[in-house]
Design a protein around this nucleic acid. Sequence first.
DNA 1: TATGAATGAGCGTTCATTCAT
DNA 2: TATGAATGAACGCTCATTCAT
Lengths: 192, 192, 192, 192
Amino acid sequence: MARNKFKILDTTVRLISDRGFSQISVDDILRESNVQKSNFYYHFRTKEDLAIAVLDEMMQKVDEEIWQGILQDKSLSPKQRLDKLIEKLVSDFETAGGKIGDPFGNLISEVNSHDERFQVKVNDYFIRYSSFLEGVIHEGIEEDEFHQSLIPREAAEAILSQIQGAYLLSKAYQDPGALRRNIEFLINVISV
Amino acid sequence: MARNKFKILDTTVRLISDRGFSQISVDDILRESNVQKSNFYYHFRTKEDLAIAVLDEMMQKVDEEIWQGILQDKSLSPKQRLDKLIEKLVSDFETAGGKIGDPFGNLISEVNSHDERFQVKVNDYFIRYSSFLEGVIHEGIEEDEFHQSLIPREAAEAILSQIQGAYLLSKAYQDPGALRRNIEFLINVISV
Amino acid sequence: MARNKFKILDTTVRLISDRGFSQISVDDILRESNVQKSNFYYHFRTKEDLAIAVLDEMMQKVDEEIWQGILQDKSLSPKQRLDKLIEKLVSDFETAGGKIGDPFGNLISEVNSHDERFQVKVNDYFIRYSSFLEGVIHEGIEEDEFHQSLIPREAAEAILSQIQGAYLLSKAYQDPGALRRNIEFLINVISV
Amino acid sequence: MARNKFKILDTTVRLISDRGFSQISVDDILRESNVQKSNFYYHFRTKEDLAIAVLDEMMQKVDEEIWQGILQDKSLSPKQRLDKLIEKLVSDFETAGGKIGDPFGNLISEVNSHDERFQVKVNDYFIRYSSFLEGVIHEGIEEDEFHQSLIPREAAEAILSQIQGAYLLSKAYQDPGALRRNIEFLINVISV
DNA sequence: TATGAATGAGCGTTCATTCAT
DNA sequence: TATGAATGAACGCTCATTCAT
């Protein structure tokens, strides 16, 4: 059973990528998912609880699609993997129709949340993603694709930071090209 | 005589850097500024009108402090100017006490707004800032501080993007260090 | 102006004597007074704030009607005043149509409230009423209407206590007679 | 086997003495008793049904503890029994930690209930208690402990009324002393 | 007996905005 | 310019109860 719980989670993920979690109301979610308010609160203690659940889902998806599916793909060189990552981010962005639809679920706009648990989760999210990238940079240096002088940890964080900023500009400009442009710029500039 | 209008604008700027515009209510602003509700609507037709006015103020401030005050400071070399910019961003971030207090007024979280005029303004904002940076990069290439291969326009946008992403991470991590780290990383990597 | 604020206060006093404050909802009050919800919250910060305001009104009414109007009526002897008080309580109870309609506004059922300010107010209420009664008992002893052995303070509190209990039984039994019976019992037993 | 039914009843009695029946929700009871909601409605048709069941339990307890245990204790004189009753009420009140914990289960606040059956039960409750007290007063008069002029029925009701009122004041004042003071006052004043 | 899931009305409160003076 | 009062929709959440298994 728990059919509705699923529908709620699903709808929320969809709505988040459009407007960000704090901008969507419980009523919005309920309207879109055709679930009763009281049933929502049967499945989730509070709206923030739903947020946590959604973040957990997103983290798992990143693990599968980005990490296992792309960044650990040994059939590709480290740089090729980052290129493939860019392609994925851009195509996700585009298929989401001008909206965001990123594997970050519009976390950009949630960083100001005043909820403690939420902050911690977002933190985890970024740290996890960073460490994924760090592994790739490390390999890339050894294989002479990235400059020897790079410190993997630093480069990884800078790439994550650049990805976030690029998302922001893409949304502001309503232009997926900005997403590709800015991430590629950084990747190119650290490549030999 | 528009004493109250000033107080409203001032308070709003302050509150925005903490929570972002869409997370503060008209009542919040009024409570903090000791202005009457009906007087608010005398000065501003809607809440969005206030947002536009605030953005205008912020853009003017960036023109003065960042552009005229730092990026056009001919007593410094182009790279020195970017370094000084970083210092300003970091110190503003820090004095704002863990909050943001940036010259971007937490635009990060407002990019998803559904208001047309707002979107356009934010766009202007980013484009203006980009063009400021473009000028500096251009100079820097001629003075051999930045790599010859750089296209100023691209590099400028990447820096702006990196600044935005770095703000985001700093807030998520509650660590001003992340702001400096990530912007410096990009500046260093494009310097000769 | 503030027409609605008045209507809200008025309606609340009426509804309280029927069911007690914690058993009536803001919606109940609004329905009965034809006031908009948002206007309610313009006049009162919270539901508890309304409660405080209502208690203040009730206290003032007791001061006027019970204290000045009856207990301080020098044309009557102390015992006669207490008798007159009983008559008033009973007739108020009866005109309220089987409901309560007492000068205590059904405080009986509000004593369990978890709101601090409310508790304090109810306390004040009882203490004030007690001291009114104390004055009468004191006079009555001097005029030889009440037993010399009585300690005014103690007798006053016992009368207040008896009044409260009698209200309770009257409501349980739906019988105004119980109100008169039980208060009279105590008055008689302390009279010479 | 009705294990859960027992747990529900038990928990409810406990919660009632703190807040009164109408102020506790079915969810509250379920949370505290670790019983499933659907199981609750297997055992009780409605929340009011539970109320009735709880009242029945309380009445039985009064029969045992107050009537058989104290008021019928032939080893004590009538007045001594009333004194012992006071001690019990006060000590129950105190061990319940400032809360009520009386054998009346906070009926004080439930008298306004709109449920017919509930009203009837509370009525029964008071009448039963009254008749217990009446017996003691009757004996006391014969044994010359209470004034000859007293009508047992009237005195009994007045004592019950005083007990209720004293509970109320004790709760308002958060002072168990008020409970003892006021009941003792009445007992003393009717004693020879 | 017992369970997980669902229901619909209602809770106290806040929202951006408008009205009349 | 400025004010106090009013509006209606929406907010996140809880209520007692029922359903299907």
